[in-house]
């Protein structure tokens, strides 16, 4: 049975977009191939690297495994929506300050993941290294940051700098600070 195109509305980095899509198109491919939004990266297309991480309605997800049709109406934030080169989000600034990147290809996903991760920790989400999963306050140790960021691979090996960058801003309200689209 051949598929018919579906109409999908997405708010991308604060801008409402509408596009008619083959239902096979993922949020990732809709952004990159249909809407020209390149601030989200494709590293594996199978949920194995985290490069395509975006924040949807406040939660970090992998856009490569998200069919766009299923996310009709979603509010999508990419790294370009968190800040601009002239007005970086505090997380982005911390990444730059700590040299928490080399090739830069995993970086937008790392940044989005880190911003949403801090919100999760603030909300009391437990992790694999939490000493007691019933405890709703998270002590965001380096081990906690590493575990919570483990879905974002970095092949250049910037992990230690990324952890420092995240810890620099862990006490701040990153999600709502900084420039770019609200």
């Amino acid at each position: 049975m051949a598929g018919h195109e579906v109409s999908v509305r997405l708010t991308v980095d604060g801008t409402a977009r509408q596009v008619d899509l083959d239902p096979r198109v993922t949020v990732l491919d809709a952004l990159r191939d249909e809407l020209g939004v390149m601030s989200v990266k494709k590293g594996c297309d199978h949920g194995q690297c985290g490069a395509c991480t975006v924040i949807v309605d406040g939660r970090r997800i992998l856009s490569c495994l998200a069919l766009a049709a299923s996310y009709d109406g979603a509010d999508v934030t990419t790294a370009a929506g968190l800040g601009t080169t002239d007005h970086l989000n505090p997380m982005q600034q911390a990444f730059a300050d700590r040299d928490a990147l080399q090739c830069g290809y995993c970086t937008p996903g790392q940044v989005c993941s880190a911003v949403a991760m801090l919100e999760e920790a603030r909300a009391g989400m437990p992790s694999h290294v939490s000493p007691d999963v019933s405890d709703t306050t998270v002590d965001l140790t380096d081990a906690e940051v590493r575990e919570r960021m483990s879905g974002n691979l970095c092949r250049c090996g910037a992990y230690v700098n990324i952890v420092r960058a995240i810890q620099d801003v862990a006490g701040q309200d990153v999600a709502r600070a900084g420039g770019g689209a609200a």
Partner: peptide
């Protein structure tokens, strides 16, 4: 929380 990643669990 031992499974997958934060993104996938969402």
């Amino acid at each position: 929380v031992a499974g997958a990643s934060g993104q996938l669990r969402n």
